[in-house]
Amino acid sequence: MAAALAVIGFAGAAQWNSSLGREEFITSAQRVLVSRAEQLQRDQELMLGEIAEAETQLQSLQERDTGSRTEIQLLSERLLAARVAAGAEEVRGPGMIVEIADSLRPVPVGESQSNYIVLVDDLRDIVTALWGSGAEAISITGSLTEGAPSARLVSTTSIYGAGVAILVNGVALSPPYRIEAIGPEGIHDRFVTHPAYLARVIERVEAYQLQFAHEARDEVTIQGFVGNTRMQWGAAVEQP
């Protein structure tokens, strides 16, 4: 009984303290905005799930066609190739992983806190260094929302900063960030020695002690992109 009461006391105090903390720093206007952003994130997750489900259903319907077997076989191969090139298919192969997180060092008085956190430029530089090292598929994980899928990088992917939040494919992620890449042999060596982009990250890692690690992997699996692949403002030019 005493132990249970002690746990209640701890949990109650912690709950009370964290509530006080939030009350202290969030204005009512901000609370409304936070609540709106959270709702939008929930909507986004829901829609991504529904799109993934509908795309799976679509793929199974495409395989069930009753037309000419040869034509369907050829078409299926072309569709798979196009989906792979677009990043819509889950892929597996040798590669590497990179992890980066905010510094654990206390921010010295007078210094900007933003020096000690992972910035959008860090992620952009790492990703660019990976593409430049021959990566064939990349994903970034680190969502603010529990259980959210990895963001597969595709032709329309932007890595964009909104304050401390970093948006990848429009999904808000938070550190630690895990970047997985599939690429040909030697990708890790090429990444480590990548001249321009990685140099900027390493400079910040050393100056502010951001947490940074990377290693080669024999096998990496990267999910397919889930999101909008349909164009609203343009259309494919018909090929002869």
């Binding site: 901000q30 936070v34 939008l40 994130q41 939040a165």
Partner: peptide, 18 residues
């Protein structure tokens, strides 16, 4: 959970995010 992360953003940053 996530709310703490979002509550670290300023009103302007939250508006951009929204």
């Amino acid at each position: 959970a996530p709310a703490i992360e979002l509550s670290g953003l300023s009103a302007q940053e939250l508006s951009d995010l929204i």
